[in-house]
Amino acid sequence: MTDQGYTAAKSDLAQYEGDTVWTEHEPFIDRIPRWVAMTGLFVMIVGIWYVVTAVEIVSNIILPTPMETWEDIVFVGRNMASGGYMLEAFITTTKTVLVAFGLAMAIGFSLGVLVGETKFGERAVMPYLVAIDTMPKVAFAPLFIAWLGFGIASKVALATFIATFPIVVSTAAGLYAASENERMLFKSIGASRMQTLVRLKLPTGLPYFFTGLKIASVGVMAGAITGEFLGGGQGVGALIRVSASQLDTPRVFSLIIYLSFLGLALFLTVVWVQKTFVFWNKSDAPGGMA
């Protein structure tokens, strides 16, 4: 009986003699290399854009043609390359963004440590931070302008204000991230509170901190530009507002594109610094984009 069963199974198997190697098939769309996919999508979008403007589904004043936009991008690029007024605007905005980002890091980190490490911070400071965080922060812009005037300071203040909160929250969360086992270990080897903070909790919390920085790098751009919209001055935001009011939509588009380079550069810098510093946390970093 069993013998027979065995022979039967064997002869079954004999049918498959030869190759039993099989490959998993990824669908075609998943196999397209990244750069091809990106270029393809870009061409597609520009194509649709072109068709929409060519048949004038929407007026050219509302949506310029791709060609017009490209020409304006080149024009703005030339202006900046030759040190024109747009370069100045860009430098102003970049300065605003960088100063605000630095301030937000310093303030956010300090507040985060206060909230995450001390009972006082957790009990007394955190509720206020949560309360302010739920408010639409842009609404504070007129206040900052009233307090600090139409210069760069009011824009820095607004951008800092917006970018600080994600850093506070993520820093505090990072300080809670060390496990009970790790805390017990540090206690057992006689580590002081300061040592536990600096040698255990802060390194453990670094991935969280960087997640906060990534969110802040987006917020700081939004804050700076909003400030320039509302408070005038010399930045790119002011240029955009003026161009828009003159119905110069190609200019608005090209300025936005140049701004996005600034935002991207800031974001990628944060990602790069994180990769260098948090080398041990490769895949499971929270908020792992890029």
């Binding site: 496990s179 086992n181 790790e182 017990m184 270990l185 057992s188 080897i189 006689g190 255990l200 390194p203």
Partner: peptide
């Protein structure tokens, strides 16, 4: 905690 006590836990808990 004292220096002359060595402790080991269920988890290795390496940094």
């Amino acid at each position: 905690p004292r220096r002359d006590i060595g402790m080991m836990f269920q988890q290795a808990t390496l940094l």
